[in-house]
Amino acid sequence: MSKKLKGVLRQIAIQLFLLLVTAMVLFPILWVVSLALDPRDIDKPLELRLIPPGASLQSFRKVLFEPFNLLCRDPSNPATCMKFGGLLRNSLLVALGTSLLAVVLGSTAAYAFSRFRFIGRQAGMLFFIVMIMLPTTGLLAPLYVLLSQIRIGSEPLRASLFGLVVAYSSGFLPFAIWNLKGYFDTVPKELEEAALIDGASVTGTFVKIILPLSVPALAVTVLNSFMTGWTEFILAWTFLDNPSRFTLAMALRSMQGQFATPWSEFAAMSILMSLPIVILFFLLQRYIVSGLTIGGVKG
């Protein structure tokens, strides 16, 4: 009896602890939701109410439809200011471009590192670790100089969205290559050999055997690289000159003023920005999980 009681108490203690952890994780999110709905522009909730007094969707409307008056080519002319739609387009271009480049270059490079023996293979992998350790902002100066040298027409590559994509993916690739190479290593070589005998070329085995079997690792690469491109703003602020190329992350950053911040709009913008990532995660989730069951050659 007392043993059973002990078990019950133990369970209660564990459950309470888990509830506490859940609350700690959820609280900031609820806080942001509450702020977004609060028209008073306060920086923290004054009471424990998810729906504040006088709640409205006013700030969402403002963020979505009104121009951002700090992001204008001509500050005196509101028509030249960026709106949510334009920022979203730029953000999507940058994030998807970063994803695409990371997956294409990452998987092909990782395949070479996984399957071919060449001089500098070990050294290359070590070098990538060093690169992973290096924060992207540490590369800001060299990237700025490098990308300014390359010109597309009259413009430096640095000032274009593609330049940003190049900068982000170069920062992300070392991780992508490590991650994908580790996964490719677990795909049995015999599967490729069977395909070679069946009539596939080396490229054919990569596309038809290795890639389909590595979907989980590819999904992780897509998700992480998309997030990098979607949320980064420091390089973007430094590199881009023309406000018509600015991104959502930059707009969010610009709202934090030196003297006053429109907290409701800031919170509303944060929520809107998190939605694509949440959606992408749900889309990719089943591929990431399926990686645990895909299995080897035997059973």
Binding site: P188, E190, L191, E193, A194, P212, L213, V297
Partner: peptide, 11 residues
């Protein structure tokens, strides 16, 4: 060739 592990394509 029939491999010892069979090497069937899992996907």
């Amino acid at each position: 060739m029939v491999f010892q592990s069979y090497a069937l394509y899992p996907h």
